[in-house]
């Protein structure tokens, strides 16, 4: 186990939105984890953690997806996820979803203990800091709710971003206020979601920052989509991209 900790085998769960919408975040995660001394594997048969089913009340579907995920990932030393809400699903909610099944509950508990959101894993577990990474920009940071409230992710991404040369961080008023994404909420109650993200977009614009960073692609897509629709020039990226030195690439919604 000692060798595993020195050079742990990490299973990267890319998440279903990163897989389809923004593979760059997946590649950034692989790069960062390898730099942090991990042996990274990306299980090819991974799909989704089941969060949409869980939040829709579909318990059977949730449990089935949770069992599939555990089967695919439990052999790793760590499971790392570039999303607070998907990590929280595995860490905090698999035990609820599998509470009725003693054997699976035990496996869910075990996997919960070794699952980490990417930023907190790099910062807390690996003590990682980017070296020689530079981005001349002023960025502001939105703290996505699940990561913040269910996993306590607040300072970890900021510590990593502070090690990026020439990057200035500008505080975002209401950084801990929900952006209105809420998974299926944003399409089921799109008018309410729009009003919430409209206020968020104004707050982001008000900081004067040219770049918005965060740790959850769902929220970032919501804010980026609203910012671009309302004609804002603010660019939006996952913090992992900047920390991995990919901050000079296309932002969310920009042509690859």
């Amino acid at each position: 186990m000692t060798s595993a900790i020195e050079c742990p085998r990490v299973g990267l769960f890319a998440t279903c939105i990163v897989d389809v919408i923004r593979p760059r975040i997946g590649f950034a995660a692989v790069k960062l984890l390898e730099e942090a001394g991990c042996v990274v594997e990306v299980p090819e048969r991974q799909t989704c953690c089941g969060q949409p089913a869980f939040n829709s009340g579909a318990t059977k579907q949730t449990a089935a997806l949770a069992r599939q995920f555990i089967d695919q990932f439990e052999a790793f030393d760590y499971i790392v996820v570039p999303s607070g809400s998907c990590a929280a699903m595995i860490k905090a909610h698999y035990c609820e979803a599998l509470a009725d099944d003693h054997e699976w509950l035990e496996r869910a508990t075990t996997i919960a203990a070794k699952t980490w959101e990417l930023m907190s894993f790099l910062d807390e577990v690996r003590g990682y800091r980017p070296v020689g990474i530079e981005l001349e920009a002023t960025a502001t940071y939105h703290d996505s709710c699940s990561g913040l409230r269910e996993l306590g992710i607040l300072e970890q991404p900021r510590r990593l971003l502070k090690a990026v040369d020439k990057l200035k961080l500008q505080p975002l008023p209401g950084n801990d206020v929900c952006c209105g994404f809420g998974g299926t909420f944003c399409v089921k109650y799109s008018a309410i979601s729009n009003a919430i993200v409209g206020e968020k977009a104004e707050a982001i614009d008000g900081t004067g920052a040219g770049l918005l960073l965060g740790g959850d692609l769902g929220c970032l897509m919501n804010m980026a989509g609203k910012l671009s629709r309302s004609g804002s020039k603010v660019r939006v990226m996952h913090a992992a991209e900047v920390i991995a030195g990919m901050g000079d690439g296309p932002a969310i919604g920009e042509e690859e």
Binding site: V20, C186, V187, A224, G225, R229, I252, G253
Partner: peptide
């Protein structure tokens, strides 16, 4: 539900996996 109020980023040609 999404595009009425916001733009959706276009996915690149290949998924991450």
């Amino acid at each position: 539900g999404w595009t009425e109020y916001r733009d959706l980023p276009a996915p690149p040609k290949k998924t991450f996996i």
